[in-house]
Design a protein around this nucleic acid. Structure first.
Length: 548
RNA sequence: GGCUCGUUGGUGAAGUGGUUUAACACAUAGCCCUCUCAAGGCUACAUUCAUGGGUUCAAAUCCCAUACGAGUCACCA
């Protein structure tokens, strides 16, 4: 046994033998082909769109195959940690219906028998494996400082050699045991590095589920597996955790692709099977003609919270993301109108190898379409839920006028080609505010082609006296409006006017515009007849009165 | 600089040697419909698949080179 004295110095007696963990974490009892995968974020802030994107895929393939989706928190970098990070992650994902079968459930809760799922609580486990490698001579203690590393790098650069701590440059490989003990006892900070057996001239072949076959040189760099603070690095924790937690598939951003040779070596070193990898391309954003990754800091739409706060329906966001992941999903939905994401078979092979530009406009379009398929009562409930958190004033109004609000939301909805005029719950108020007396203010300016106020009032008064009756059905109502137009010298039909513009003051459109603006203060509204019916006689009189 | 990946219209893309005069969707523009708006219908939008060579009767599809872009080369994940 190598390094026996050294490891006694570093690890206390509580550290169990590796065999303990190998026996404790038994293979999962799942059916053939079941996928076990995880979301493994570091708790550094809010969930990013790219995270949602990959967790959507992870959850789907795990559940479609009868597997397990779990949440492991990678908090080995204590400097970057954010308070309530876990809570925030769980909340953001839950809003998008992403829930976990096991793992972290909240700041200090977890379920599942492959835990702990918080890496900082797994220190003993990592130590067991690190000590094992140390004793087998596969790892060694290193005192190299970042300054020394920098010097090595410069030397390599000037000699045009490959950069890194490898081979002859890995000078601490050759430290004598006595020296190591002495320096540790002096309190000198140290790390533990894996003693790489790799050969840069040899190749490793990676069969990535997204990128396909990738051939890379073997890793020959002695990567740090335990940091000076005693916590493992990502690379080592990844190998140990996914081995013990019986992960079958690792889905992660493609920035990890070039680390796979290290991971392969580490998995082999601890005697573990190598999981299947799927390295997914990032969501991109274009700014000033430059393509870059969608950034949480620069792009508000990158934070998953944005959609919750905007009231963009969860279904729209997930549909969009699935469309980006597997573009055939879009056609699948066109031909299977009543189907959802759950009926669709996701395929890694259909994923793009290069990063897709994130297209908010397309997402909004999907959202408009989605919202147009909902029943008015459903929209109402969702709107109520949204407003209760983000618009208290509007919440009070729609609560008070429940039936009326549903009627407003139902305008031009239950028909073959429903209206598609809003893409988010936050957008609804902009479209219908004038229907509430509390929000309505008369508009004196948008009268279309008719400028004379006397004429306007005359038209409105005549309408009320001779042509308005709340009991009219739509065709009758419109016929009456045409009668009104005729009385004032406006054409009954637009065509009629266009054929002979000199014969008329204007046409029916001008007359209905007068009515529309008087009642809604807006030049653009949904079907006027529906609005009139919902307002009712009393409020119509009142609104017209406001103009006098 | 080394290693790796990528490159089809403004955007997401289909496409895996001949049915492609390059699908579909978003965006944009025009027309139609129409009492306004939204929607809907129709039309337009890559003679060409980063560029240059090659293989082949035939290439966006196979091969090579070049260019450009991205990732990585931490005691960050």
């Amino acid at each position: 046994m190598a390094n026996e004295k050294v490891s006694k110095l570093i690890f206390d007696d509580k550290v169990k033998p590796v065999s303990y963990y190998e026996e404790k974490y038994v293979p999962r009892n799942l059916k053939e082909g079941a996928i076990v995968t995880r979301y493994a974020p570091s708790p550094t802030g809010k969930v990013h769109m790219g995270h949602l994107y990959s967790s959507l895929i992870g959850q789907k393939i795990a559940h479609d195959t009868g597997g397990v989706y779990f949440l492991r928190i990678e908090d080995t970098d204590k400097k970057r940690e954010v308070s309530n990070g876990v809570e925030s992650i769980v909340h953001d994902l839950k809003h998008f219906h992403i829930t976990f079968d096991e793992g972290m459930m909240g700041e200090n809760q977890e379920t599942g028998s492959y835990g702990p799922y918080l890496q900082s609580n797994r220190k003993e486990i990592y130590h067991a494996y690190i000590r094992d490698l140390l004793l087998k001579g596969k790892a060694y203690v290193s005192f190299v400082t970042s300054e020394e590393l920098e010097e090595i790098r410069k030397k390599q650069e000037s000699k045009k050699e490959r950069i890194g701590y490898y081979g002859k440059y890995a000078k601490d490989r050759f430290l004598k045991e006595e020296e190591i003990i002495e320096r540790i006892q002096k309190g000198e900070p140290f790390t533990i590095r894996y003693l790489s057996q790799g050969d840069f001239e040899k190749k490793v072949v990676i069969k990535d589920l997204v990128k396909g076959k990738v051939v890379m040189p073997e890793n020959d760099i002695d990567t740090v597996i335990m940091k000076a603070d005693g916590l493992p690095t990502y690379h080592f924790a990844h190998a140990v955790d996914d081995h013990l937690m019986k992960t079958t598939h690792v889905i992660r951003g493609d920035e990890w692709l070039s680390s796979v040779p290290i991971h392969v070596e580490l998995f082999k070193a601890i005697g573990a099977n190598i999981p299947k990898y799927a390295h997914i391309s990032p969501l991109m954003k274009e700014e000033n003609g430059v393509r870059r990754k969608l950034s949480k800091r620069k792009d508000p739409e990158a934070a998953v919270r944005f959609y919750e706060e905007e009231g963009i329906p969860v279904e729209a966001v997930t549909t969009y993301l699935m469309t980006v992941a597997n573009s055939n999903f879009e056609e699948f939905l066109i031909y299977n109108k009543d189907k959802t994401i759950d009926d669709f078979t996701f395929d890694f092979k259909k994923m793009s190898k290069s990063g897709a530009m994130f297209d908010l406009e397309k997402l909004k379009n999907i959202s408009r379409n989605y919202l147009s398929t909902l029943k008015a009562t459903t929209i109402y409930e969702q709107l109520l839920h949204f407003a209760s958190q983000y618009d208290k004033e509007f919440f009070a109004l729609i609560s008070k006028y429940k039936e009326e609000t549903i009627a407003i939301l139902n305008i031009e909805r239950e028909q073959k080609k429903p209206r598609k005029d809003f893409y988010a719950y936050s957008d609804i108020k902009n479209q219908i505010w004038y229907m509430y007396d509390e929000l309505f203010t008369p508009n004196m300016y948008e009268w279309g082609t008719i400028a004379d106020k006397k004429e306007i009032l005359n038209i409105l008064n005549t309408y009320l006296e001779k042509y308005y009756d709340a009991s009219f059905d739509e065709p009758t109502w419109f016929l009456k409006l045409k009668d009104l137009a005729e009385e004032f010298g406006y054409a009954r039909e637009v065509k009629e006017y266009k054929q002979n513009p000199e014969a008329f003051k204007g046409h029916i459109g001008d007359i209905s515009m007068v009515l529309r603006v008087a009642l809604t203060s807006k030049a653009m509204t949904p079907n006027l007849y529906d609005i009139i019916q919902i307002l009712g006689k009393e409020r119509i009189l009142k609104r017209i009165d406001l103009l006098k």
